[in-house]
Design a protein around this nucleic acid. Sequence first.
DNA 1: GTGGTCTAGACCACT
DNA 2: GTGGTCTAGACCACC
Lengths: 117, 117, 117, 117
Amino acid sequence: MNFDTSIPIYLQVVNDLKGKVASGQILSGEKLPSGRELAQQYQINPNTAARVYQVLEQQGICETRRGLGTFVVEQEEIQKTVREEMAKDLARKFLERMKALGFTVEEIGKILKEEGK
Amino acid sequence: MNFDTSIPIYLQVVNDLKGKVASGQILSGEKLPSGRELAQQYQINPNTAARVYQVLEQQGICETRRGLGTFVVEQEEIQKTVREEMAKDLARKFLERMKALGFTVEEIGKILKEEGK
Amino acid sequence: MNFDTSIPIYLQVVNDLKGKVASGQILSGEKLPSGRELAQQYQINPNTAARVYQVLEQQGICETRRGLGTFVVEQEEIQKTVREEMAKDLARKFLERMKALGFTVEEIGKILKEEGK
Amino acid sequence: MNFDTSIPIYLQVVNDLKGKVASGQILSGEKLPSGRELAQQYQINPNTAARVYQVLEQQGICETRRGLGTFVVEQEEIQKTVREEMAKDLARKFLERMKALGFTVEEIGKILKEEGK
DNA sequence: GTGGTCTAGACCACT
DNA sequence: GTGGTCTAGACCACC
Protein backbone atom coordinates (compact mmCIF):
# COMPACT_ATOMS: atom_id res chain seq x y z
CA MET A 1 0.00 0.00 0.00
CA ASN A 2 1.08 3.51 -0.75
CA PHE A 3 1.01 5.94 2.13
CA ASP A 4 2.31 8.91 0.28
CA THR A 5 -1.21 9.20 -1.00
CA SER A 6 -1.47 12.84 -0.16
CA ILE A 7 -2.34 14.40 -3.46
CA PRO A 8 0.10 17.13 -4.50
CA ILE A 9 -1.37 20.55 -3.88
CA TYR A 10 -1.15 21.57 -7.49
CA LEU A 11 -3.31 18.62 -8.50
CA GLN A 12 -5.80 19.46 -5.81
CA VAL A 13 -6.13 22.95 -7.24
CA VAL A 14 -6.34 21.55 -10.76
CA ASN A 15 -9.21 19.34 -9.72
CA ASP A 16 -10.92 22.14 -7.89
CA LEU A 17 -10.78 24.38 -10.95
CA LYS A 18 -11.90 21.56 -13.21
CA GLY A 19 -14.83 20.98 -10.88
CA LYS A 20 -15.78 24.64 -11.19
CA VAL A 21 -15.65 24.43 -14.95
CA ALA A 22 -17.56 21.16 -14.95
CA SER A 23 -20.31 22.52 -12.75
CA GLY A 24 -20.57 25.80 -14.59
CA GLN A 25 -19.14 28.00 -11.88
CA ILE A 26 -16.48 29.04 -14.36
CA LEU A 27 -17.58 29.53 -17.95
CA SER A 28 -15.98 29.07 -21.34
CA GLY A 29 -13.83 32.06 -22.27
CA GLU A 30 -13.78 33.37 -18.73
CA LYS A 31 -10.58 34.92 -17.44
CA LEU A 32 -8.95 33.00 -14.65
CA PRO A 33 -7.11 34.72 -11.78
CA SER A 34 -3.50 35.66 -12.37
CA GLY A 35 -0.84 33.33 -11.08
CA ARG A 36 -0.22 35.64 -8.14
CA GLU A 37 -3.94 35.88 -7.38
CA LEU A 38 -4.40 32.14 -7.58
CA ALA A 39 -1.46 31.73 -5.24
CA GLN A 40 -3.12 34.01 -2.72
CA GLN A 41 -6.57 32.47 -3.07
CA TYR A 42 -5.30 28.98 -2.44
CA GLN A 43 -2.46 30.00 -0.16
CA ILE A 44 0.06 28.30 -2.37
CA ASN A 45 3.39 29.24 -3.82
CA PRO A 46 3.28 31.26 -7.10
CA ASN A 47 5.38 28.55 -8.73
CA THR A 48 2.79 26.00 -7.74
CA ALA A 49 0.06 28.23 -9.15
CA ALA A 50 1.95 28.44 -12.42
CA ARG A 51 2.15 24.68 -12.51
CA VAL A 52 -1.62 24.49 -12.10
CA TYR A 53 -2.21 26.48 -15.27
CA GLN A 54 0.47 24.49 -17.04
CA VAL A 55 -1.42 21.29 -16.33
CA LEU A 56 -4.80 22.76 -17.26
CA GLU A 57 -3.29 23.96 -20.51
CA GLN A 58 -1.91 20.52 -21.27
CA GLN A 59 -5.37 19.13 -20.70
CA GLY A 60 -6.80 21.62 -23.16
CA ILE A 61 -8.93 23.34 -20.58
CA CYS A 62 -7.34 26.76 -20.51
CA GLU A 63 -4.88 28.79 -22.53
CA THR A 64 -2.61 31.66 -21.59
CA ARG A 65 -2.37 34.78 -23.65
CA ARG A 66 0.88 36.64 -23.19
CA GLY A 67 0.27 39.87 -21.31
CA LEU A 68 -3.44 39.20 -20.86
CA GLY A 69 -3.65 36.27 -18.51
CA THR A 70 -5.09 32.77 -18.52
CA PHE A 71 -8.52 32.01 -19.94
CA VAL A 72 -10.80 29.04 -20.08
CA VAL A 73 -10.70 27.73 -23.59
CA GLU A 74 -13.12 29.44 -26.01
CA GLN A 75 -15.13 26.41 -26.75
CA GLU A 76 -18.84 25.93 -26.36
CA GLU A 77 -18.48 22.40 -25.17
CA ILE A 78 -15.68 22.82 -22.70
CA GLN A 79 -17.93 22.51 -19.68
CA LYS A 80 -19.57 19.42 -21.03
CA THR A 81 -16.23 17.92 -21.95
CA VAL A 82 -14.63 18.45 -18.57
CA ARG A 83 -17.76 17.38 -16.78
CA GLU A 84 -17.92 14.13 -18.67
CA GLU A 85 -14.25 13.48 -18.25
CA MET A 86 -14.50 13.91 -14.51
CA ALA A 87 -17.58 11.73 -14.40
CA LYS A 88 -15.81 8.97 -16.26
CA ASP A 89 -12.87 9.20 -13.88
CA LEU A 90 -15.16 8.94 -10.88
CA ALA A 91 -17.03 6.05 -12.42
CA ARG A 92 -13.88 4.16 -13.32
CA LYS A 93 -12.43 4.52 -9.86
CA PHE A 94 -15.71 3.57 -8.26
CA LEU A 95 -16.11 0.44 -10.36
CA GLU A 96 -12.49 -0.52 -9.81
CA ARG A 97 -12.88 -0.38 -6.04
CA MET A 98 -16.18 -2.20 -6.04
CA LYS A 99 -14.74 -4.95 -8.18
CA ALA A 100 -11.79 -5.20 -5.84
CA LEU A 101 -14.37 -6.02 -3.18
CA GLY A 102 -15.66 -8.73 -5.45
CA PHE A 103 -18.93 -7.18 -6.60
CA THR A 104 -20.40 -7.95 -9.99
CA VAL A 105 -21.82 -5.26 -12.23
CA GLU A 106 -25.32 -6.39 -11.34
CA GLU A 107 -24.68 -6.15 -7.61
CA ILE A 108 -23.14 -2.70 -8.05
CA GLY A 109 -26.25 -1.54 -9.84
CA LYS A 110 -28.42 -2.86 -7.06
CA ILE A 111 -26.41 -1.13 -4.36
CA LEU A 112 -26.51 2.15 -6.23
CA LYS A 113 -30.28 1.95 -6.49
CA GLU A 114 -30.52 1.43 -2.75
CA GLU A 115 -28.26 4.36 -1.96
CA GLY A 116 -29.39 6.61 -4.74
CA LYS A 117 -32.33 8.58 -3.58
CA MET B 1 -11.55 25.54 -0.03
CA ASN B 2 -10.19 22.71 1.93
CA PHE B 3 -6.76 21.42 1.02
CA ASP B 4 -6.47 19.04 3.89
CA THR B 5 -8.02 16.41 1.69
CA SER B 6 -5.38 13.90 2.65
CA ILE B 7 -7.03 11.19 4.68
CA PRO B 8 -5.31 10.71 8.05
CA ILE B 9 -2.82 7.88 7.98
CA TYR B 10 -4.59 5.94 10.68
CA LEU B 11 -7.79 5.96 8.62
CA GLN B 12 -5.90 4.89 5.52
CA VAL B 13 -4.61 1.87 7.40
CA VAL B 14 -8.06 1.25 8.83
CA ASN B 15 -9.50 1.20 5.33
CA ASP B 16 -6.73 -1.00 4.06
CA LEU B 17 -7.35 -3.57 6.79
CA LYS B 18 -11.10 -3.36 6.31
CA GLY B 19 -10.55 -4.00 2.63
CA LYS B 20 -8.56 -7.10 3.48
CA VAL B 21 -11.32 -8.34 5.73
CA ALA B 22 -13.98 -7.49 3.16
CA SER B 23 -12.17 -9.34 0.42
CA GLY B 24 -11.39 -12.35 2.55
CA GLN B 25 -7.63 -11.82 2.72
CA ILE B 26 -8.03 -11.69 6.49
CA LEU B 27 -10.48 -14.12 8.03
CA SER B 28 -12.76 -14.08 11.04
CA GLY B 29 -10.86 -14.90 14.20
CA GLU B 30 -7.48 -14.37 12.59
CA LYS B 31 -4.75 -12.68 14.58
CA LEU B 32 -3.74 -9.29 13.28
CA PRO B 33 -0.14 -8.07 13.46
CA SER B 34 0.88 -6.68 16.82
CA GLY B 35 0.82 -2.93 17.17
CA ARG B 36 4.56 -2.79 16.82
CA GLU B 37 4.51 -5.01 13.73
CA LEU B 38 1.78 -2.97 12.11
CA ALA B 39 3.81 0.14 12.80
CA GLN B 40 6.76 -1.36 10.95
CA GLN B 41 4.70 -2.71 8.06
CA TYR B 42 3.07 0.61 7.36
CA GLN B 43 6.01 2.73 8.50
CA ILE B 44 3.97 4.51 11.11
CA ASN B 45 4.38 5.24 14.79
CA PRO B 46 3.27 2.52 17.23
CA ASN B 47 0.78 4.94 18.74
CA THR B 48 -0.76 5.51 15.35
CA ALA B 49 -0.93 1.76 14.87
CA ALA B 50 -2.67 1.46 18.21
CA ARG B 51 -5.19 4.03 17.09
CA VAL B 52 -5.91 1.94 14.03
CA TYR B 53 -6.92 -1.03 16.15
CA GLN B 54 -8.80 1.27 18.47
CA VAL B 55 -10.96 2.43 15.57
CA LEU B 56 -11.43 -1.06 14.19
CA GLU B 57 -12.45 -2.29 17.62
CA GLN B 58 -14.91 0.53 18.02
CA GLN B 59 -16.38 -0.45 14.64
CA GLY B 60 -16.84 -3.96 15.93
CA ILE B 61 -14.40 -5.44 13.45
CA CYS B 62 -11.66 -6.60 15.77
CA GLU B 63 -11.13 -7.17 19.45
CA THR B 64 -7.98 -6.99 21.51
CA ARG B 65 -6.91 -9.49 24.11
CA ARG B 66 -4.41 -8.01 26.48
CA GLY B 67 -1.05 -9.69 26.31
CA LEU B 68 -2.18 -11.76 23.34
CA GLY B 69 -2.83 -9.38 20.50
CA THR B 70 -5.62 -8.09 18.31
CA PHE B 71 -7.96 -10.45 16.46
CA VAL B 72 -10.63 -10.14 13.84
CA VAL B 73 -13.95 -10.64 15.58
CA GLU B 74 -15.09 -14.26 15.87
CA GLN B 75 -18.17 -13.89 13.77
CA GLU B 76 -19.22 -15.80 10.71
CA GLU B 77 -20.67 -12.80 8.93
CA ILE B 78 -17.95 -10.29 9.61
CA GLN B 79 -16.58 -10.41 6.08
CA LYS B 80 -20.00 -9.96 4.55
CA THR B 81 -20.84 -7.15 6.93
CA VAL B 82 -17.67 -5.19 6.30
CA ARG B 83 -17.85 -5.78 2.57
CA GLU B 84 -21.37 -4.42 2.36
CA GLU B 85 -20.61 -1.49 4.57
CA MET B 86 -17.63 -0.50 2.45
CA ALA B 87 -19.67 -0.88 -0.70
CA LYS B 88 -22.36 1.41 0.62
CA ASP B 89 -19.76 3.97 1.60
CA LEU B 90 -18.20 3.91 -1.84
CA ALA B 91 -21.58 4.16 -3.50
CA ARG B 92 -22.69 7.08 -1.36
CA LYS B 93 -19.53 9.06 -2.00
CA PHE B 94 -19.65 8.32 -5.71
CA LEU B 95 -23.24 9.44 -6.03
CA GLU B 96 -22.57 12.54 -4.00
CA ARG B 97 -19.72 13.63 -6.25
CA MET B 98 -21.62 12.85 -9.42
CA LYS B 99 -24.61 14.83 -8.23
CA ALA B 100 -22.29 17.72 -7.39
CA LEU B 101 -21.38 17.69 -11.07
CA GLY B 102 -25.07 17.92 -11.88
CA PHE B 103 -25.69 14.39 -13.11
CA THR B 104 -29.08 12.75 -12.66
CA VAL B 105 -29.47 9.19 -11.49
CA GLU B 106 -30.29 8.13 -15.03
CA GLU B 107 -27.18 9.73 -16.44
CA ILE B 108 -25.04 8.16 -13.74
CA GLY B 109 -26.43 4.76 -14.65
CA LYS B 110 -25.64 5.36 -18.29
CA ILE B 111 -22.05 6.40 -17.61
CA LEU B 112 -21.50 3.36 -15.43
CA LYS B 113 -22.72 1.09 -18.17
CA GLU B 114 -20.27 2.65 -20.59
CA GLU B 115 -17.34 2.30 -18.21
CA GLY B 116 -18.41 -0.94 -16.68
CA LYS B 117 -16.95 -3.81 -18.55
CA MET C 1 -5.65 -11.01 41.28
CA ASN C 2 -5.70 -7.75 39.48
CA PHE C 3 -4.08 -4.80 41.20
CA ASP C 4 -4.44 -2.45 38.32
CA THR C 5 -7.80 -1.43 39.70
CA SER C 6 -7.05 2.22 39.22
CA ILE C 7 -9.36 3.53 36.57
CA PRO C 8 -7.45 5.28 33.77
CA ILE C 9 -7.36 9.04 34.24
CA TYR C 10 -9.11 9.72 30.97
CA LEU C 11 -12.04 7.56 32.07
CA GLN C 12 -12.16 9.26 35.43
CA VAL C 13 -12.52 12.60 33.71
CA VAL C 14 -15.07 11.11 31.32
CA ASN C 15 -17.12 9.93 34.27
CA ASP C 16 -16.79 13.22 36.03
CA LEU C 17 -18.05 15.13 33.01
CA LYS C 18 -20.83 12.61 32.44
CA GLY C 19 -21.86 13.09 36.06
CA LYS C 20 -22.05 16.82 35.50
CA VAL C 21 -24.23 16.32 32.45
CA ALA C 22 -26.38 13.77 34.27
CA SER C 23 -26.94 16.06 37.21
CA GLY C 24 -27.62 19.11 35.09
CA GLN C 25 -24.47 21.01 36.01
CA ILE C 26 -23.63 21.03 32.30
CA LEU C 27 -26.51 21.59 29.92
CA SER C 28 -27.34 20.44 26.42
CA GLY C 29 -25.57 22.58 23.84
CA GLU C 30 -23.19 24.06 26.38
CA LYS C 31 -19.58 24.60 25.41
CA LEU C 32 -17.10 22.46 27.25
CA PRO C 33 -13.64 23.72 28.19
CA SER C 34 -11.10 23.60 25.39
CA GLY C 35 -8.77 20.63 25.41
CA ARG C 36 -5.99 22.78 26.79
CA GLU C 37 -8.23 24.20 29.52
CA LEU C 38 -9.47 20.77 30.50
CA ALA C 39 -5.86 19.66 30.71
CA GLN C 40 -5.09 22.45 33.15
CA GLN C 41 -8.24 21.97 35.22
CA TYR C 42 -7.60 18.28 35.75
CA GLN C 43 -3.83 18.54 35.67
CA ILE C 44 -3.52 16.15 32.79
CA ASN C 45 -1.75 16.18 29.46
CA PRO C 46 -3.56 17.89 26.56
CA ASN C 47 -3.50 14.61 24.67
CA THR C 48 -5.24 12.89 27.53
CA ALA C 49 -7.80 15.67 27.58
CA ALA C 50 -8.34 15.17 23.87
CA ARG C 51 -8.94 11.50 24.50
CA VAL C 52 -11.62 12.40 27.03
CA TYR C 53 -13.59 14.32 24.42
CA GLN C 54 -12.93 11.59 21.90
CA VAL C 55 -14.63 9.08 24.20
CA LEU C 56 -17.50 11.40 25.04
CA GLU C 57 -18.05 12.07 21.37
CA GLN C 58 -18.03 8.39 20.58
CA GLN C 59 -20.65 7.91 23.29
CA GLY C 60 -22.80 10.53 21.60
CA ILE C 61 -22.58 12.94 24.50
CA CYS C 62 -20.63 15.76 22.93
CA GLU C 63 -19.56 16.88 19.50
CA THR C 64 -16.57 18.89 18.43
CA ARG C 65 -16.59 21.74 16.00
CA ARG C 66 -13.18 22.37 14.58
CA GLY C 67 -11.78 25.72 15.51
CA LEU C 68 -14.71 26.35 17.84
CA GLY C 69 -14.47 23.79 20.58
CA THR C 70 -16.37 20.86 22.03
CA PHE C 71 -20.05 21.10 22.92
CA VAL C 72 -22.56 18.95 24.71
CA VAL C 73 -24.83 17.49 22.09
CA GLU C 74 -27.85 19.64 21.15
CA GLN C 75 -30.46 17.25 22.31
CA GLU C 76 -33.27 17.80 24.77
CA GLU C 77 -32.99 14.38 26.36
CA ILE C 78 -29.24 14.13 26.72
CA GLN C 79 -29.29 14.74 30.46
CA LYS C 80 -31.96 12.14 31.02
CA THR C 81 -30.21 9.65 28.79
CA VAL C 82 -26.82 10.00 30.45
CA ARG C 83 -28.35 9.99 33.91
CA GLU C 84 -30.19 6.75 33.28
CA GLU C 85 -27.20 5.13 31.68
CA MET C 86 -24.99 5.97 34.62
CA ALA C 87 -27.62 4.73 37.06
CA LYS C 88 -27.84 1.40 35.28
CA ASP C 89 -24.07 1.07 35.32
CA LEU C 90 -23.90 1.76 39.04
CA ALA C 91 -26.73 -0.67 39.72
CA ARG C 92 -25.17 -3.43 37.65
CA LYS C 93 -21.81 -3.10 39.34
CA PHE C 94 -23.39 -2.94 42.78
CA LEU C 95 -25.45 -6.06 42.20
CA GLU C 96 -22.49 -7.88 40.77
CA ARG C 97 -20.36 -7.23 43.83
CA MET C 98 -23.14 -8.05 46.26
CA LYS C 99 -23.81 -11.31 44.49
CA ALA C 100 -20.10 -12.10 44.64
CA LEU C 101 -20.49 -11.86 48.42
CA GLY C 102 -23.30 -14.35 48.17
CA PHE C 103 -26.27 -12.10 48.79
CA THR C 104 -29.64 -12.84 47.26
CA VAL C 105 -31.76 -10.19 45.66
CA GLU C 106 -34.02 -10.16 48.69
CA GLU C 107 -31.14 -9.65 51.10
CA ILE C 108 -29.76 -6.87 48.95
CA GLY C 109 -33.10 -5.12 49.07
CA LYS C 110 -33.20 -5.44 52.83
CA ILE C 111 -29.70 -4.00 53.29
CA LEU C 112 -30.52 -1.09 51.04
CA LYS C 113 -33.60 -0.30 53.10
CA GLU C 114 -31.50 -0.24 56.24
CA GLU C 115 -28.88 2.04 54.73
CA GLY C 116 -31.22 4.08 52.66
CA LYS C 117 -32.38 7.09 54.50
CA MET D 1 -12.27 16.12 41.91
CA ASN D 2 -9.55 13.91 43.20
CA PHE D 3 -7.35 12.23 40.66
CA ASP D 4 -5.09 10.47 43.03
CA THR D 5 -7.90 7.99 43.35
CA SER D 6 -5.64 5.03 42.83
CA ILE D 7 -6.28 2.97 45.92
CA PRO D 8 -3.09 2.21 47.86
CA ILE D 9 -1.94 -1.34 47.21
CA TYR D 10 -2.14 -2.33 50.85
CA LEU D 11 -5.82 -1.40 50.94
CA GLN D 12 -6.44 -3.34 47.76
CA VAL D 13 -4.95 -6.42 49.37
CA VAL D 14 -6.91 -5.76 52.56
CA ASN D 15 -10.13 -5.65 50.57
CA ASP D 16 -9.19 -8.75 48.66
CA LEU D 17 -8.57 -10.70 51.84
CA LYS D 18 -11.75 -9.36 53.43
CA GLY D 19 -13.64 -10.46 50.36
CA LYS D 20 -12.23 -13.94 50.73
CA VAL D 21 -13.27 -14.04 54.35
CA ALA D 22 -16.69 -12.63 53.52
CA SER D 23 -17.31 -15.18 50.81
CA GLY D 24 -16.02 -18.08 52.84
CA GLN D 25 -12.88 -18.76 50.84
CA ILE D 26 -10.94 -18.16 54.03
CA LEU D 27 -12.44 -19.52 57.23
CA SER D 28 -12.46 -18.47 60.85
CA GLY D 29 -9.30 -19.60 62.63
CA GLU D 30 -7.49 -20.33 59.41
CA LYS D 31 -3.82 -19.48 59.17
CA LEU D 32 -3.00 -16.72 56.74
CA PRO D 33 0.17 -16.75 54.64
CA SER D 34 3.29 -15.36 56.28
CA GLY D 35 4.22 -11.79 55.51
CA ARG D 36 6.87 -12.99 53.09
CA GLU D 37 4.45 -15.37 51.39
CA LEU D 38 1.80 -12.71 51.10
CA ALA D 39 4.40 -10.38 49.60
CA GLN D 40 5.20 -12.98 46.95
CA GLN D 41 1.58 -13.88 46.22
CA TYR D 42 0.58 -10.30 45.59
CA GLN D 43 3.93 -9.17 44.25
CA ILE D 44 4.22 -6.49 46.89
CA ASN D 45 6.90 -5.37 49.29
CA PRO D 46 7.14 -7.31 52.59
CA ASN D 47 6.64 -4.04 54.45
CA THR D 48 3.43 -3.49 52.55
CA ALA D 49 2.34 -7.03 53.41
CA ALA D 50 2.99 -6.33 57.07
CA ARG D 51 0.85 -3.25 56.84
CA VAL D 52 -1.96 -5.34 55.40
CA TYR D 53 -2.07 -7.56 58.49
CA GLN D 54 -1.75 -4.51 60.69
CA VAL D 55 -4.92 -3.05 59.20
CA LEU D 56 -6.80 -6.33 59.33
CA GLU D 57 -5.84 -6.66 62.96
CA GLN D 58 -7.10 -3.18 63.72
CA GLN D 59 -10.38 -4.12 62.09
CA GLY D 60 -10.61 -7.17 64.33
CA ILE D 61 -10.45 -9.58 61.46
CA CYS D 62 -7.19 -11.33 62.17
CA GLU D 63 -4.66 -11.64 64.98
CA THR D 64 -0.96 -12.42 64.96
CA ARG D 65 0.55 -14.95 67.32
CA ARG D 66 4.24 -14.40 67.91
CA GLY D 67 6.25 -17.15 66.32
CA LEU D 68 3.20 -18.82 64.81
CA GLY D 69 1.88 -16.43 62.20
CA THR D 70 -1.30 -14.55 61.45
CA PHE D 71 -4.71 -16.15 61.83
CA VAL D 72 -8.25 -15.20 61.03
CA VAL D 73 -9.94 -14.40 64.31
CA GLU D 74 -11.36 -17.45 66.13
CA GLN D 75 -14.91 -16.35 66.01
CA GLU D 76 -17.86 -18.19 64.58
CA GLU D 77 -19.43 -15.07 63.18
CA ILE D 78 -16.37 -13.48 61.62
CA GLN D 79 -17.42 -14.34 58.10
CA LYS D 80 -20.89 -13.02 58.64
CA THR D 81 -19.55 -9.86 60.26
CA VAL D 82 -17.11 -9.04 57.51
CA ARG D 83 -19.62 -9.93 54.84
CA GLU D 84 -22.21 -7.63 56.27
CA GLU D 85 -19.76 -4.85 56.79
CA MET D 86 -18.65 -5.02 53.18
CA ALA D 87 -22.24 -5.16 52.04
CA LYS D 88 -23.11 -2.07 54.01
CA ASP D 89 -20.12 -0.25 52.55
CA LEU D 90 -21.15 -1.17 49.04
CA ALA D 91 -24.74 -0.18 49.70
CA ARG D 92 -23.78 3.14 51.23
CA LYS D 93 -21.53 4.08 48.36
CA PHE D 94 -24.10 2.96 45.82
CA LEU D 95 -26.87 4.98 47.40
CA GLU D 96 -24.63 8.00 47.76
CA ARG D 97 -23.77 7.99 44.07
CA MET D 98 -27.33 7.40 42.97
CA LYS D 99 -28.56 10.25 45.13
CA ALA D 100 -25.85 12.48 43.70
CA LEU D 101 -27.52 11.79 40.35
CA GLY D 102 -30.80 12.91 41.89
CA PHE D 103 -32.56 9.58 42.22
CA THR D 104 -35.08 8.95 44.96
CA VAL D 105 -35.13 5.76 46.99
CA GLU D 106 -38.16 4.59 45.04
CA GLU D 107 -36.48 5.15 41.70
CA ILE D 108 -33.37 3.34 42.89
CA GLY D 109 -35.46 0.35 43.87
CA LYS D 110 -37.09 0.32 40.47
CA ILE D 111 -33.79 0.46 38.61
CA LEU D 112 -32.38 -2.36 40.71
CA LYS D 113 -35.36 -4.53 39.90
CA GLU D 114 -34.81 -3.92 36.20
CA GLU D 115 -31.11 -4.76 36.36
CA GLY D 116 -31.36 -7.44 38.94
CA LYS D 117 -32.08 -10.71 37.31
C1' DG E 1 -7.64 30.83 19.51
C1' DT E 2 -9.68 25.90 18.46
C1' DG E 3 -9.27 20.73 17.57
C1' DG E 4 -6.79 16.86 14.59
C1' DT E 5 -2.85 14.21 13.62
C1' DC E 6 1.56 12.21 14.31
C1' DT E 7 5.88 11.18 16.52
C1' DA E 8 8.93 9.61 20.32
C1' DG E 9 9.45 7.41 24.27
C1' DA E 10 8.18 6.08 28.97
C1' DC E 11 6.00 2.87 32.37
C1' DC E 12 2.75 -0.69 33.60
C1' DA E 13 -0.22 -4.91 33.54
C1' DC E 14 -1.12 -9.23 31.51
C1' DT E 15 0.54 -14.00 29.46
C1' DG F 1 6.29 -10.81 24.18
C1' DT F 2 1.46 -8.36 24.13
C1' DG F 3 -1.65 -4.12 24.56
C1' DG F 4 -3.01 0.17 27.68
C1' DT F 5 -1.95 4.53 29.43
C1' DC F 6 0.30 8.87 29.78
C1' DT F 7 3.48 12.50 28.77
C1' DA F 8 5.85 15.95 25.82
C1' DG F 9 6.00 18.38 21.95
C1' DA F 10 5.51 19.08 17.01
C1' DC F 11 2.86 20.67 12.81
C1' DC F 12 -1.39 21.66 10.43
C1' DA F 13 -6.25 23.17 9.30
C1' DC F 14 -10.09 25.83 10.68
C1' DC F 15 -12.29 30.08 12.66
